[in-house]
């Protein structure tokens, strides 16, 4: 005997069952299409990022090269004899610190190594001259003074000045070693380390160069971009640095970069 109600229920179940494969196919196709769409969007974003980076970095390298002063950063050490009656032995004189160093002692690194780096086209591919690193041992210094100070030194009876020997050997040896390791494996972490070190040492040009190299290897390291733009600011290219930061923030939404940008704009970071 036919049971209409039961048969209708069975028919509904059958219809649902018969539509299941279609639903599954439609869902699968939707998921595949969605995945392709997301993948394409990500690829487009990467391509855009690369394009921006190319725009940003390539001309900048040239700019930096042109900015590089003809004279090496590391200036000759001038030993200023102390007044005869005083035991001032040697005074190292640095051109770049002349303007602000009255009675102030400025410690600066031995940049013999960097001299070599600057003359090279691709400093990170060159081997370090071992003699240079030996020269890094600076005996000095000691005191950075202006011409005026030198004159004053003769007039005022400058007492003393003990002979201070600061050895930078370790730091520079470290950098040299890391650079040589970097040359072997091209690891961006190493180039970033070198950039940081140079930045800490105040060699913003080299810091800039190594940050740039790091960015070329891996464009997603926040710190590298920050060192890069900080170095630019330090090199007097504030506008350029801001422009790069803005573009980088657009791409990465980096908070650190935003904070730095705010600081540059507000003048907090000079």
């Amino acid at each position: 005997m036919l049971n209409l109600h039961e048969l209708e229920q069975r028919w509904i179940r059958y219809k649902i069952k018969s539509y299941l494969p279609y639903i599954a196919i439609i869902l699968s196709i939707s998921i595949i299409l969605l995945s392709i769409f997301i993948f394409l969007q990500e690829s487009t974003a990467t391509v855009n990022k690369n394009t921006i980076l190319e725009k940003l970095t390539i001309p900048e390298v040239k700019a930096i090269v042109s900015v590089t002063p003809k004279k090496p950063l590391v200036k000759k050490k001038t030993v200023v004899p102390a007044t005869s009656n005083k035991e001032l032995t040697k005074i190292s004189k640095r051109e770049r610190s002349l303007h602000n160093s009255t009675n102030k002692l400025t410690l600066s690194p031995s940049l013999g190594f960097m001299k070599k780096m600057q003359t090279d086209q691709q400093p990170y591919y060159k081997t370090e001259n071992s003699n240079e690193s030996n020269d890094i041992q600076v005996e000095v210094p000691v005191v950075t003074v202006t011409h005026k100070d030198i004159q004053n030194l003769q007039h005022q009876e400058l007492k003393v000045v003990k002979k201070i020997t600061i050895t930078h050997k370790n730091t520079h040896n470290d950098i040299a070693e890391i650079i040589s390791r970097f040359k072997k494996n091209n690891n961006p972490a190493l180039s970033l380390f070198v950039a940081k070190k140079y930045y800490e040492l105040g060699d913003y040009r080299q810091a800039y160069n190594y940050a740039l190299i790091t960015n070329q290897i891996n464009r997603d390291i926040d710190v590298s971009w920050i060192i890069f733009t900080k170095s630019l600011v330090k090199l007097g290219k504030k506008e350029k640095a801001m422009k790069i930061l803005k573009q980088y923030i657009n791409q990465s939404h980096s908070n650190q970069a935003q904070i730095l940008l705010d600081e540059i704009i507000s003048g907090k970071f000079k």
Binding site: L7, E8, R10, W11, R13, Y14, K15, K17
Partner: peptide
Amino acid sequence: IEMAAIHTGLINA
């Protein structure tokens, strides 16, 4: 038609 087929076993529901 499908209900009849289900009842007669021609469709396995």
